[in-house]
Design a protein around this nucleic acid. Structure first.
Lengths: 195, 195
DNA sequence: TGTACATCAGTGAACGCGCGTTCACTGATGTAC
DNA sequence: TGTACATCAGTGAACGCGCGTTCACTGATGTAC
């Protein structure tokens, strides 16, 4: 092969590239539908090198889930500072989020998948906690229970929106937005029974 | 082999047995983690007979998802008649539902998995519609948007509860229940930061 | 009612294939002199 | 500064295995006489 990456300082970067490639592929196609070979290829490497970075595919799954959700939590904290509750809710309950599952929130793309792998729970819990804390800080009057309920609504709405055809997705997202932000029905379009 | 089932009237029952076996296994382990061989074995048959009933594993997946969610929708309609909104919400947001994923709501066990298989959407949409209709009938003052938001909250809460360790699951379920039923905080236990 | 036969639900060996994982190796790198 | 060498990140062939699917077959069933 012509190009190889062998400097010791580069190993950590290669590892990170593998995690990022896997986080896209896992979210897009599901954990079991993506092989080590496909991940390494997406990272610009050959499959054999995988085990120099991770003990097993399962170990990668746990790390990827934790990493991707931690990035979501970071984003929530950053957006909440700049744009407040509506900033988070609008970007989460956005058709673009529904469409781009490969970059979407892990809870909505891999939730049930990760739930079957108890090894990954611990690492996710911390990020879920951070996301709930952001919501609670922005709506202190609803308390922690209100924050957990709002998070549930947002996660569930994106899951449902990905199962809806046509305009159904938009209707679910709008309904969830209304519930979480407490907006009145306002000028509602004449959408009817499209889910 | 000693026992075989070959009467023409029995074929439809065999087919149903395959669907039911698959619906349990898919929900418990995920679609890609369960092979045709395991499904047929659980149905008391050998793997070769599968293709006398279904064109492919993908065709079975679509049928299983539709069947299992339709049974949920039926149950919602039946329970709503007898026990009203609290009957549905209490049984859906119950630790027993969280624990028994293999018999749980398809939206929470296979949602993202099915979302990646557009072939199965159509059959699911009808059942989602029925579930939303049940919620709207029981809370007409919140309208269709309120029903879709409540459904989102319930689905998201079960997904999150399956990712939580220890008491975190109960906390999410209680928060979602409070949000959907509109109950006041009431006598809340001193649970703190357990998710 | 009893016998011969056609049907076809279910069997199980076999197929090509891609999986997760291992391992002997290669060759660019950073270091020692 | 220039050369020789040890390190080790990454390569790619190979492993056993289980996948989805096919197919020649078996034998219990319902039917015809």
């Amino acid at each position: 092969m012509l190009h190889m990456r062998k400097s010791p300082i580069g190993k950590a970067k290669t590892r990170q590239r593998i995690i990022e490639a896997a986080s896209t592929l896992f979210r897009a196609h599901g954990v079991d539908a993506v092989g080590v070979d496909a991940i390494m290829h997406a990272a610009g490497l050959t499959h054999g090198g995988f085990y120099g970075h991770f003990a097993s595919k399962e170990a990668l799954v746990a790390e990827v889930a934790a990493y991707a959700l931690a990035r979501s939590a970071e984003r929530w904290e950053r957006v909440s500072d700049a744009e407040g509750l509506t900033g988070i809710v609008d970007s989460y309950l956005d058709p673009a989020h529904v469409a781009a599952a490969e970059r979407g929130c892990v809870l909505t793309t891999l939730g049930p998948d990760v739930a079957r792998r108890p090894g990954a729970w611990e690492a996710l819990g911390k990020s879920v906690e951070r996301m709930a804390a952001v919501l609670e800080r922005l709506s202190p009057e609803r308390g922690r229970a209100g924050a957990l309920a709002a998070l549930s609504t947002m996660v569930g709405a994106v899951v449902l929106a990905r199962l809806a055809e046509g305009d159904g997705a938009g209707e679910v997202l709008a309904a969830a937005k209304e519930a979480v932000l407490g907006q009145p029905p306002a000028a509602r379009a004449g959408v009817d029974h499209v889910l």
